[in-house]
């Protein structure tokens, strides 16, 4: 685990399964139709139970860059922020990803969340480069925490050493 302090708030980088975290809100990188699908969606469906999917039926569809909040069913988290980010090398990926992250943070604040967990946004299946994601996420989260209303702790939850390293590098810039 790596921790960075921003003012009095914290950014933590951990390895683990984001759907098992006990946080106020966790971010799910969603499809525009808000179908949970496979991957983390499988974990949310199975561990969270059917209520999440049911709630999502009235929330979608959602445009790229936007985010919406649902309950988290039986998960340890209280809310899920469904963030629809850019996918598969689409145009203006960086700008869209930035908007997606900012909207996720906005949703967390509106829900009064004190803790939020982010996955590596859009990396892996959706093809966002890890370097781009780690730079944007750490930058935007650090900036946000300087003036945050309710958020006290942001967790970046990665799966393995391959994902951990780029985020660690970016966090080291925050801690100086």
């Amino acid at each position: 685990m790596v921790t960075a302090e921003v003012e009095t708030e914290q950014i933590q980088l951990i390895k683990g399964d984001i759907t098992l975290l006990e946080v106020d809100a966790l971010v799910f990188y969603a499809e525009p139709n808000l179908e949970l699908g496979s991957g983390f969606g499988t974990a949310i469906s199975i561990r969270g139970g059917p209520t999440v999917k049911k709630e999502l039926e009235r929330l979608g569809p959602v445009g790229t860059g936007e985010a919406v909040v649902s309950g988290a069913g039986n998960l340890k988290a209280s809310y899920i922020i469904h963030a629809v980010g850019p996918r598969f090398q689409e145009e203006n990926t960086e700008e869209k990803l930035k908007t997606t992250i900012l909207n996720s943070l906005r949703c967390a604040e509106e829900a009064g969340a004190k803790t939020i967990a982010f996955p590596p946004m859009g990396t892996g299946f959706y093809g966002i480069p890890l370097d781009l994601c780690s730079r944007l996420l750490v930058e935007l989260v650090s900036d946000h925490l300087k003036t945050s209303a309710s958020l006290k702790e942001v967790i970046i939850c990665v799966q393995d050493a391959r994902e951990f390293e780029p985020f660690r590098k970016e966090l080291s810039k925050v801690t100086g």
Binding site: D17, G39, F125
Partner: peptide, 19 residues
């Protein structure tokens, strides 16, 4: 292909088997 790929990217196995 999308379903299987996403399972393997995010859950570490291609059939979405939880730990």
């Amino acid at each position: 292909v999308a379903t299987v790929s996403k399972d393997q990217w995010e859950l570490g196995n291609q059939m979405g088997v939880l730990k």
